[in-house]
Computed example of a mutant assay.
Amino acid sequence: MAVDGTLIAFPAAGGGKWMFTGLRRALPPGLKLVVPDLPGRGKRTRDTSVGSVAELVTELCDELEPEFHHGRYVLFGSCFGSLVAFELLREIRRRGHPMAEAFVVSARKPPDIAESYRAYAGWTDEQLGGYLDYIWPAERVNGENGALGALRGLVIRQLRRDVQIAANYDFEPERVFDLPIYAYRGADDQSITAEELKTWRSHTSGPFTFRAVTGGRDFYADDCDRLVADLEQVLT
Score class of each variant (00 low, 15 high):
188 D>C: 11
189 D>M: 07
131 Y>P: 11
157 R>P: 02
114 A>I: 01
86 F>Y: 15
221 A>E: 08
63 E>M: 09
44 R>I: 11
79 C>R: 00
173 P>F: 10
82 S>R: 03
136 W>Y: 10
11 P>I: 00
205 S>E: 03
204 T>F: 03
76 F>V: 01
236 T>Y: 02
32 K>Q: 07
5 G>L: 10
203 H>I: 07
124 T>F: 01
150 A>Y: 03
141 V>K: 01
151 L>P: 00
24 R>L: 10
42 G>N: 05
95 R>Y: 12
38 L>S: 02
179 L>T: 00
144 E>Q: 15
216 G>C: 11
159 L>Y: 00
91 E>Q: 15
81 G>I: 07
20 F>R: 01
35 V>R: 07
28 P>E: 07
211 R>G: 08
136 W>G: 01
189 D>R: 05
47 D>G: 10
151 L>E: 10
115 E>K: 12
32 K>S: 05
31 L>R: 06
33 L>E: 09
112 D>Y: 05
211 R>D: 13
79 C>S: 12
107 A>Y: 00
232 E>K: 07
230 D>V: 10
35 V>Q: 04
231 L>A: 09
218 D>P: 00
71 G>K: 09
191 S>G: 11
19 M>N: 08
35 V>D: 02
217 R>G: 13
21 T>Y: 13
135 I>V: 12
56 L>S: 12
221 A>R: 12
222 D>N: 14
124 T>E: 00
143 G>H: 09
209 T>D: 13
16 G>E: 03
53 V>H: 08
18 W>G: 11
57 V>G: 14
175 R>A: 15
114 A>C: 12
82 S>W: 05
32 K>L: 02
155 V>H: 01
77 G>M: 08
8 I>M: 03
82 S>K: 05
61 C>V: 15
11 P>F: 03
20 F>N: 03
65 E>Y: 00
2 A>Y: 11
40 G>D: 05
228 V>P: 06
132 L>E: 05
214 T>C: 02
216 G>H: 06
64 L>A: 14
40 G>L: 09
136 W>S: 04
207 P>S: 15
62 D>G: 07
15 G>S: 01
210 F>M: 13
217 R>P: 02
232 E>L: 11
47 D>I: 02
125 D>K: 01
40 G>A: 07
31 L>S: 04
127 Q>C: 01
12 A>L: 06
180 P>K: 11
147 A>Q: 09
174 E>A: 14
168 N>R: 15
9 A>Y: 07
210 F>T: 10
50 V>K: 07
227 L>G: 05
26 A>E: 14
157 R>C: 11
174 E>H: 13
64 L>E: 14
16 G>H: 01
57 V>F: 10
33 L>H: 04
213 V>Q: 02
100 A>V: 01
